[in-house]
Design a protein around this nucleic acid. Sequence first.
DNA 1: CTACATCCTCTAGCGGCTAGAGGTTCAAGA
DNA 2: TCTTGAACCTCTAGCCGCTAGAGGATGTAG
Lengths: 138, 138
Amino acid sequence: MSLTIGELSRQTQVKVPTIRYYEQIGLLAEPTRTEGQQRRYRPEDVRRLNFIRHARELGFEVEAIRQLLGLAGDPDRSCGEVHDITKAHLKEVKDKIARLTALRDELETMVSCNHRRISDCRIIEVLADHGQCRHVEH
Amino acid sequence: MSLTIGELSRQTQVKVPTIRYYEQIGLLAEPTRTEGQQRRYRPEDVRRLNFIRHARELGFEVEAIRQLLGLAGDPDRSCGEVHDITKAHLKEVKDKIARLTALRDELETMVSCNHRRISDCRIIEVLADHGQCRHVEH
DNA sequence: CTACATCCTCTAGCGGCTAGAGGTTCAAGA
DNA sequence: TCTTGAACCTCTAGCCGCTAGAGGATGTAG
């Protein structure tokens, strides 16, 4: 019925030390313990930890997850705040994509270097002098 | 003729503690010192630090920059290795863009939540159960 | 009852900085 | 020449989100 930390780890794909870390920073509640002080988890903890893992995979910061968990535990409130957190995160993600796309274009230009001696290498030049490249300002 | 660490900082937009940190980890050579132990930089150091800063902005890791600097200091070698480092980095950047784009789409679906009570909120559901969403595996 | 996989706590480390304490140096102005 | 005070110095500790390892205890299958 109850799970060891290792079983919880296997079911959620979250590493054992990470589970303990989440408990330490208060993302996961302290589970019950056996007489020998080993942690035993309830099946619901799988769901909560999956929530955390998925949110982390999506790039939510721990602090944001903490907020989401707080809101999620209060089923009668409007989900406007949840919406706001997600929207803020979406904006960050879009910005990051824009910056990486500019970067990708710049790297692609750089990679067109044609293997002469270092002293002629465009990559080195571009890195040494920002003005040399068509850099999209950020 | 020589620059204080503050002037170097202003010219390169790299913060003073970061310059000292780069020296500590061996990215920047130890500069000359005044009698009172204050650092004095040569104009060439501006160029080297700009190289480092730009490479960092482009997302190169310190270790990669160390390699690039080593290669750049050896003007007679083929720049094939430089090319390889950049290409590997380009691949990473492309992968990151792909993952973020999938994430963006997922977040956009989530944001279409229509502000009812938390218990109906799609965002919470999606986070709680990975299977609910059309997630691009990575 | 034994073996041994898994668990426990605790501490330290990673990358890439950033911040602060507490003290010293340097250059400009009086 | 002296005095300010901004900028410098070193050192230590902290940030995030884990990850690794030491050294020892527990739990379960055979």
